[in-house]
Design a protein around this nucleic acid. Sequence first.
DNA 1: GCCCCTATGTTGACGTCGTTAAGTTGACAG
DNA 2: CTGTCAACTTAACGACGTCAACATAGGGGC
Lengths: 229, 229
Amino acid sequence: MEARRARARPGDGARLREEILRNAEQLLVETGDEGAITLRSVAQRTRVTTPSVYLHFSGKEALIEAVCLRVWDELGNRIREAVGRVTDPLIALGECGRAYVHFALDHPVQYRLLMMRPSASTEASKACFGHMVNAVTACVESGVLQGNPDTLALTMWTAVHGCAALLITQPALPWPDDVNEIIDATVRMVGFGAALNTHLPRRRVPRSAELLDGVTAAAERLKALGRKK
Amino acid sequence: MEARRARARPGDGARLREEILRNAEQLLVETGDEGAITLRSVAQRTRVTTPSVYLHFSGKEALIEAVCLRVWDELGNRIREAVGRVTDPLIALGECGRAYVHFALDHPVQYRLLMMRPSASTEASKACFGHMVNAVTACVESGVLQGNPDTLALTMWTAVHGCAALLITQPALPWPDDVNEIIDATVRMVGFGAALNTHLPRRRVPRSAELLDGVTAAAERLKALGRKK
DNA sequence: GCCCCTATGTTGACGTCGTTAAGTTGACAG
DNA sequence: CTGTCAACTTAACGACGTCAACATAGGGGC
């Protein structure tokens, strides 16, 4: 057997917990495969026997859940920072979406683990969702969006999540050479669409010709405003 | 040992293949857990010994891949049907999105299996994607959308996929009581947003006040058109 | 200084999983 | 009737998650 890890002092056992968590995430990133997280592999990398993991996690599921919690935290921080950097509420919301997708693409394996698991950690995801609701609420208060902030935020989150998820899980699709092209298109589509949608009556879906007419009106108005500036 | 399955006649061995596939998907649906698909459990349900599965599938991965293929096919059919029922290209595109999300919600476990797997079946997903590109192409030809149909379809697919995915994997979020509310919001947001986005110059993101102004112009124009009709 | 007690691990084992190699059986061609 | 070959079975291996039982170090009470 190889060099063993020095035993922790009483009261200091939680250090092993941290080390196990770190090694589990490292293993996940290095192999790119969730299946590579094995109690045995994690234990070996921590230079500890397999059952020792049970001293700090009730089982494999709990270990993975703990890994997810860390990632949710990072994601939440990243979103909060992005929103905080801008004052205009609509632009802040866009930055929120961009930060979200970029985080997912920077940590594809972790993101998959987060979102694709059967029993995802609900508390952490709700906290993360809260940051988006804040960004949306600012837009509602400024008048650019109307309606229930929760529902609005959900609708917009689904879109950016889908963008990140498909980019990660379906790389074979005909994506443009520059990923930012898709991200920008998504963020703009979400912003424009949500705004237009909330200011329209709910009753009926416009036909192609009608929507085209309304949209060109909006486009010309926006172009005119841009020139004036 | 329990009653064994009658041995197939020579040349007729592929029947077992079908039965295995059916049982695997049944197992998946009944338990709601991908992990419940075990070579042993599938074999037992088919009243066959475990290694017999290897006569028709090169391993567990291939079996699951085959299950996915079937689901991709069903999804593709459902989309094609939905698009075919309507003539107006924009409304057809909307129906495409609605059919997509409803299929996902009707087969949540299968949908998760499809989209969340590390190595998703690329050929089948591309075929499915083709149906959406067709619906988008019709919109481009009618002028309501502008740009590359592939990129447009991708942007819009990501949004509806995200809607389906989050509804399935994050049921704890504050969804509205009626799911159709979110689906409608997403479909409308995608349609409006994509249209407005493609008719706008790419250079810069409008600020809240500007977008609000343009959007109200579009809304009033659309309302006026609705009255005239 | 000694002892014992608890936190901190380890040993060994069980059952299940995917996978493989080798043996068996039964329907059909000749 | 007989041999052949597709269609299955038997038996086994290593890796996995999990658990019960055992070992050991370090610190507090006397």
